[in-house]
Design a protein around this nucleic acid. Structure first.
Length: 116
RNA sequence: AGAGAGGGUCAGGGAGACGCCGGUCGCCGGCUCAAGUCGGCGGCUGGAGGAAAGUCCGGACUCCACAGGGCAGGCCACUGAGGAGAUCUCAGCAGGGGUGACCUUGGGAAAGUGCAACAGAGAGCAGACCGCCGAUGGCCCGCUCCGUGCGGGCACAGGCAAGGGUGAAACGGUGGUGUAAGAGACCACCAGCGGCCCGGGCGACCGGACCGGCUCGGUAAACCCUGGUCGGAGCAAGGCCAAGUAAGAAGGCGCUCGAGAGCUGCCCGCUCAAGCCUUCGGGUAGGCCGCCUAGAUGAAUGUCUUCCCGCGACAGAAUCCGGCUUAUCGACCCUCUCUCCUU
RNA sequence: GCUGGAGUAGCUCAGUUGGCAGAGCACGUCCUUGGUAAGGACGGGGUCACGGGUUCAAUUCCCGUCUCCAGCU
């Protein structure tokens, strides 16, 4: 699952605009897991990732680490994820999670949110 | 060997694979007449810290009027250098702490005002509870040569501040003279204060001699005084472009007799000035510059495999510098101190 | 990123020329009632966020940390 060789993470796979974030927040389906909450809004051109993490999560180092792990989980599994804008909001429980666990939860949560 | 003091350096490293951001070169594609711009691929190359942190000081920079006067207010404070400057650094001086290496604090209490609960007799040019004495005066008793004499007692007047006790602090310490008992009342030495002189040092200050009155306390991180310093805001400063709502409604003040704004707490002064303020309702919150041989603007350093060691702490740039403070697993280096053991 | 403010009992908050730690609600016991609520009486509960410093003495004054909350695009 973690064999990410060949996978890429270009700019087109990221949420870049404030309006994009607000649209996913308002219209997307939500899913809450042990480690983070998801907002998922289907689109045609493939998956895109956005991360929202508040200052209350921890120090700058902990917030950066969480974002990098989530990005890595996303990059290694773009083929398994549904074609949608995926917004990830980590909770403090995410600090101890490995990339492996994050990837599993990400695929499961996104699929379930779409399925509803 | 153990314990400790001061200062400095490093911040896991090597190899491979896949990725991320910037720069540059080349190629390809979209849009455009073109300059150009957007995207993709490949090569080369750069890519977090000693604190990037806290935002505690000081600047650069930007805007307010290229920055005025007074009052108020804030901040700083031993000496000498360094520095653009600083609550900075270095060296020194004095007080305090430590056996020591060293650490730590720093204007003025004799300009004035204020404060010191409780305890205690007394707390600021103090005071007498217990206590000591009672020479002198008073009262009582005895002796008597009957006197203005002698002896004893009382603790009434009065004297004293040595000792006890209270307190954080009680108006010098030790010894002696002295006295009824005592006391700087007097004397010797010591401590401390003030004045003056000599010597050393750029200076803070240090050493010494003489004289004086004999003691003259603490707190300015209380008001304050003295000297110095400070205009206000801050890159979300500020500038440019684009998009877009509304030429919205109600009320108030005003158009040179001047509302209001710059401008900060107040006043003065200066400048601009025909619109301004309040409430309700509505819209936008995009891009570029500022912004950098790290330089983003949803915001870049990660994941996996393997080897080595002491198994890796605190922690992530956001306009940029100079400091301070705080967090920190450990490793190494230099200088020095104390104790013990051996020779 | 920048600029302010706050931290005192379980909760909401007072507390100035530095010397006492307080109020309301809540909680416990008792009284009142046939019983409950209300009311009355009594009572417990605090490292004044933390660590240094100044002072004889600090919730208070000074310095440094931590946490929380606002405002500015």
């Amino acid at each position: 699952m973690l064999d990410g060789s060949g996978s890429r993470f270009p700019v087109t796979m990221r949420l870049k605009k404030r309006t994009d974030f607000l649209r996913v927040f308002r219209k997307g389906a939500t899913w809450s897991g042990a480690c983070f909450a998801l907002h998922v809004l289907p689109r045609a051109e493939g998956p895109r990732l956005g991360i929202v993490i508040s200052r209350k999560y921890g120090t700058a180092v902990e917030r950066n680490r969480a974002k990098r792990r989530i990005r890595e989980a996303f990059r290694a599994n773009t083929e398994r994820l549904p074609s949608a804008d995926i917004l990830v909001r980590p909770s403090p429980a995410c600090r101890e999670a490995t990339v492996d666990e994050i990837a599993r939860l990400l695929i499961e949560g996104a699929s379930r949110a779409i399925g509803r």
